[in-house]
Design a protein around this nucleic acid. Structure first.
Lengths: 340, 340
DNA sequence: AACGCTATTGGGAACGTTCCCAAAATGCCG
DNA sequence: CGGCATTTTGGGAACGTTCCCAATAGCGTT
C-alpha cells in the first residue's frame, strides 16, 4: 500500500530522480523518449506527488482559509462555491471555519489558520473592530488577507469585495415608497458591522428626502438571526409604533420578522410589506417570496479568491476594493400591496 | 518576515536541534532547565513548527476531506460544525467540497482529495451506487472513508453514521394519522438514495397497517430541492389525486410543497397538514413551522469524525455503523389540524 | 580513584521533492 | 577524427522536522 515515490520510479526505470522530476514537471530539456517512458511508468505505478514534500520544498502549503460568521445561512455557502471554483483547479485546498458570530472564536480561527501556515485567508468578519490587531499581526506575518461582504473600517492594506450597499438600500426604500409605503421600519443589524450602517444610511437618505424619517422606526438588532428579526418586530408592536412595511438588513431578519407577523395574522404584503437585502435562496423559499437586493454571491467568492491569488503570487500587489453590482428583485412580499 | 525554524532556535541557544525538538515535543529526557529555556526562546522568537515538514516526516497530511452534495441547505453546515468541534483541536484541517448533487462532481472531488493525500474522508453521497468503484479504490489506497446520512448499499468495509429512518418515518406517519389525516401523500426523494427508500418503507408500513396505502399517493422526486417539492405537489394536484397531508423526505421538499400550496390559498394545516424529516433550522424558519423528525446533526458530525479518527489511528479497527436517535418535533404544520 | 549507571545532549540520516551544478552523451563542423 | 557547442542526464544539497544511535556529563558505589 506504500505510495510510489520518485525514487521508486527512478529504480524502476534506471533513471535518476532528477530526470524523472523534470519529465513530470514538463521541463524543456529532457529527451522526448525518456519523458514518454517516465509518464508511462508514473501512470502504471500510480505515482502521485507527495504534496507535503512539495510544500516543504516550495515553502507554501497551498492551503487557503475561509472564515465566516456562520454557514447555516446559505450566504457563505454560495460564496464558498465561487471560491472553490477558482481555487480548486489550481490545486489549492480550502479550509472552512465558522466563527459563530463571535469575535473570540474568529480570533481563534485566524490563529489556527496561521498555525496551519495557510497561504492566504478569505474573511467575512463578525465584528468590525474587535480583531484588527489580529488581522494586522497575520498580515505582518506575510499571510495575505482578503475581506468580503463585511469588511473592517480602518484601511488595512488588504483587498475587499463588497457591493454598493448604500445605493441599493436607497433604491429598495424608493421601491417601498412607490408601493405606497410611508411608515417604513428598518431592522438595522448590529452597528459593529459596516454593511449594516451603510444600508441604514441609504435608508435614512431616502426617508429624509421624502420627509418620512422617524427615528423610532429604526430598530437596531444585536445579531442577524431569525430570532433577532422576530424580537425586533415584536418590540415595534409592543411600543405600538405604527409601520406599514419593513426594510431589513438581511433575509434572515426579514424572514424572522415576517414569520412573527404571520403568526399574528398580519397579511403580507397587504398590511405590512417586507423587503430585505442579501441574495440568499432563503428569500425565494418562503411564502410570500421576499423582495430583496440580491448580491452576486458566487461572483463575490470568485472575485475574492482572485484577489487573494494576486496577493499570494505577488505580495507587493496593490490592494483593491472591488464593488460588485447587486440586483433588485421584486417579489410577492411587496408588489401589489394595494390591490386588495 | 522569514519564519523561525528549529535551526534558528538552535543557533540562538547554542543547543542542538535534537534537544530543541525534544523540549518542544515534551520528551521525557531533556533537562527541565533547558526545556524552560527552549520554550522561552520559542515564545520570544515566535516559533511555529512548519507543518509541511512535520507532515513529510510523519507521512500524514492532517487533512480531512468533507464531501457533501450541497451546502446551501443548513444540513451539511450543522454536521460540519460537529466535525470541526472534534477535529480542529487535534490539529486536523477540514477541506470542504460540494458535489452539487452530481455524482460526476462527487467523483472529481474524491479524486482531488486523494491527490491532496488526505488522511481520511467524510462523505455524504449523492448517488448510492454510481461511485462505488471510486470508494473502493480510495479505501484500497489506504484512505479511510466514513459515510454519514446517505450511505452506500453494499457492505464496503467502512463506518457509517445514520439515524433510524424507517422507524422514525413510521412514527411520523402515525402522528399524521392521529391528527386525523387519512390521505397522506409521500414525497419520496430519489430512489438512488438509501435514506429515501428507508423512510418510504416506514411510511408504507404504517399506511398498510391502517389500510390507507394508495400507490398514487407516493411521488418520487428526482432531487431534494425546493423546486422538486413544488413540482411533486403540483403533479398531485394536476392528477387530481386527493390528499389531506404530506410527509416529505426532507425539509426542503416539504417547504417547496408548502409554498406551492400557500400560493394557491391552501391552508396549512387545516386543508393539508405537512410533516418532514431532516432537522435543519429551515423547518422552524417558515410559517407555519413544520413538524419534522429532527436528526442530531451536530452529533452526527462528531460521531462521524470520531469514527474516522479511529480508522486513521488504527487502520485495522473494525468498521462500525452507528445509529443515532432522531427526535420527533410537533409543530404548527400538523397540530390542531381539526380545531377550526 | 576507577567503575558503571543514568540523565542529558549532539550528530546525522531520513521523509520526497526540486533544482543547481557538473558530467556525460550527442551532433556538427572543419 | 578531434574539438566544440548543445542536449540530456546524474549527483547531491536543501527545505524543516523527528528520532535513532552514539557521545558526553553527572553521580553514587566500592
Amino acid at each position: 500500500m506504500k505510495r510510489t515515490t520518485l525514487k521508486d520510479l527512478s529504480q524502476y526505470l534506471s533513471v535518476s530522480t532528477s530526470t524523472i522530476s523534470r519529465a513530470l514537471l514538463d521541463d524543456k530539456d529532457v529527451h522526448p523518449d525518456t519523458r514518454k517512458k517516465v509518464l508511462e511508468a508514473a501512470e502504471k505505478l500510480g505515482y502521485k506527488p507527495n504534496l507535503a514534500a512539495v510544500n516543504l520544498k516550495y515553502g507554501k502549503t497551498k492551503n487557503i482559509g475561509f472564515v465566516v460568521p456562520e454557514m447555516v445561512t446559505p450566504f457563505a455557502a454560495a460564496v464558498l462555491s465561487g471560491v472553490q471554483k477558482v481555487l480548486y483547479p489550481l490545486g489549492y485546498k480550502v479550509i472552512v471555519l465558522q466563527s459563530d458570530e463571535n469575535h473570540l472564536y474568529e480570533k481563534d480561527n485566524l490563529l489556527l489558520l496561521q498555525d496551519f501556515n495557510v497561504d492566504g485567508i478569505l474573511l467575512n468578519l463578525c465584528h468590525e473592530t474587535a480583531n484588527i490587531d489580529v488581522f494586522k499581526q497575520i498580515m505582518e506575518a506575510g499571510i495575505p488577507l482578503v475581506f468580503f461582504d463585511r469588511i473592517p473600517p480602518t484601511s488595512l492594506d488588504a483587498s475587499h469585495v463588497i457591493v454598493n450597499d448604500s445605493i441599493k438600500a436607497a433604491l429598495m426604500v424608493e421601491h417601498l415608497i412607490s408601493c405606497g409605503c410611508q411608515k417604513i421600519a428598518h431592522l438595522q443589524g448590529p452597528s459593529t458591522v459596516r454593511n449594516a450602517v451603510e444600508r441604514a444610511n441609504g435608508y435614512r437618505r431616502i426617508m429624509n428626502k421624502h420627509n418620512l424619517f422617524q427615528s423610532q422606526l429604526v430598530v437596531q438588532t444585536s445579531g442577524t438571526s431569525f430570532a433577532d428579526g422576530k424580537s425586533a418586530v415584536a418590540s415595534l408592536l409592543e411600543q405600538e409604533i405604527e409601520f406599514d412595511s419593513i426594510f431589513a438588513y438581511t433575509d434572515t431578519l426579514a424572514i424572522g420578522a415576517m414569520n412573527y407577523l404571520l403568526e399574528r395574522k398580519v397579511r403580507i404584503p397587504e398590511d405590512v410589506a417586507i423587503a430585505s437585502f442579501s441574495g440568499t435562496q432563503l428569500s425565494e423559499n418562503v411564502f410570500p417570496q421576499i423582495t430583496t437586493v440580491e448580491q452576486p454571491l458566487f461572483q463575490m467568492g470568485e472575485t475574492a479568491a482572485s484577489l487573494l491569488l494576486e496577493k499570494i503570487t505577488n505580495p507587493l500587489a496593490a490592494s483593491q476594493t472591488i464593488v460588485l453590482d447587486a440586483q433588485m428583485k421584486y417579489r410577492g412580499s411587496t408588489v401589489n400591496k394595494n390591490t386588495d
